[in-house]
């Protein structure tokens, strides 16, 4: 996997003890980085295991003296129909992600590989939509969905997110690295444009597709304000809306319960990430370009 040059360096580290010390220092730095990156998440997790009276103590409690995992998590599981919320969230995020992967890679391919008149302007027009903050579009967009009779439906949550300017931009940038010689060779063989896209361009873009899939799924999974506007019925709530029930209001927070909910909310995202991560490990090296 690693580049040969870097492997060579690593091999030579074994030679001198001075380099060994350097290696230890490097390892220590990586461990330090890992600790810094993990600590806040650890703190969130450990908070979700604590009883209320161990929450905001001075000095802080790093390892609960009294565990309250069962109480906190069973509270979350019993107080709200969490399975229902999971399902709603997953349905919305999955439909939207699949649609976005398809539309983004296709549009990215067309924008990058096919010379259409005025496409740069169209492309810039799509990118520009990212620059208008969502809060001002919210009300007009809500009115559109009202007229489509989609307020208070799950379709209203994903129908506005079937394509993504961000995704199109991302896929176009990565299509730039697809060697055109491969595409042209297929064109000479008489392959249709769609099959060139699907059979040649797409397999070369598994890593960016995985990245986009993860990002978009996370983005949709984490959506709060739009579902808040759209959904009134308890049955149609997504997970972030459902978890609001643990905010007690009046500036007082039940941190242990909020964190228990938040940790449960993270699980699907982690799963999607782990599924997608395989595609980062595999790269273009497998699909080969040795000719």
């Amino acid at each position: 996997m690693a580049s040969i040059a870097l492997q060579a360096t690593r091999r030579s580290t074994r030679v001198s003890s001075q380099r060994l010390g350097l290696g230890a220092l490097k390892a220590a730095l990586w461990v330090a980085l890992a600790v810094v990156m993990l600590f806040p998440t650890y703190w969130g997790l450990i908070t979700s295991f604590k009883p209320p009276h161990e929450l905001n103590t001075d000095p802080p409690i790093f390892w609960p003296q009294q565990w309250s995992i069962v109480e906190n998590y069973s509270f979350v599981l019993t107080q709200i129909p969490i399975a229902r919320y999971y399902l709603n969230s997953f349905y919305v995020a999955a439909v939207s992600t699949l649609a976005v992967l398809f539309t983004s890679s296709l549009a990215g391919y067309i924008f990058e590989e096919i010379d259409l008149k005025g496409k740069e302007y169209l492309f810039m027009g799509i990118i520009a939509t990212m620059m208008v903050p969502f809060p001002v579009r919210m009300i007009p967009l809500y009115i559109i969905f009202r007229d489509l009779h989609l307020v208070n439906t799950l379709a209203g949550l994903y129908l506005g997110a079937l394509t993504s300017a961000y995704g199109i931009f991302l896929m176009r940038q990565f299509m730039k690295t697809v060697p055109r010689e491969l595409l042209d060779a297929a064109r000479i063989d008489g392959a249709g444009e769609f099959s060139i896209f699907a059979r040649i361009a797409m397999p070369l873009c598994t890593a960016p597709l995985a990245a986009l899939g993860i990002f978009h799924f996370m983005y949709e999974w984490d959506q709060f304000v739009w579902p808040l506007l759209m959904i009134d019925d308890g049955d149609l709530r997504t997970l972030p809306l459902g978890l609001v029930a643990f905010r007690t209001g009046f500036g007082v927070q039940d941190w242990h319960k909020i964190m228990a909910g938040a940790m449960m909310g993270m699980i699907p995202v982690i799963i999607v990430y782990l599924l997608g991560q395989r595609h980062f490990v595999r790269g273009i090296t497998l699909t080969g370009l040795k000719s």
């Binding site: 990565f174 690295t177 890593a207 960016p208 790269g283």
Partner: peptide, 9 residues
């Protein structure tokens, strides 16, 4: 990392 995977080895 995704960008690096697309660079020919």
């Amino acid at each position: 990392i995704a960008g690096l995977t697309t660079i020919p080895y």
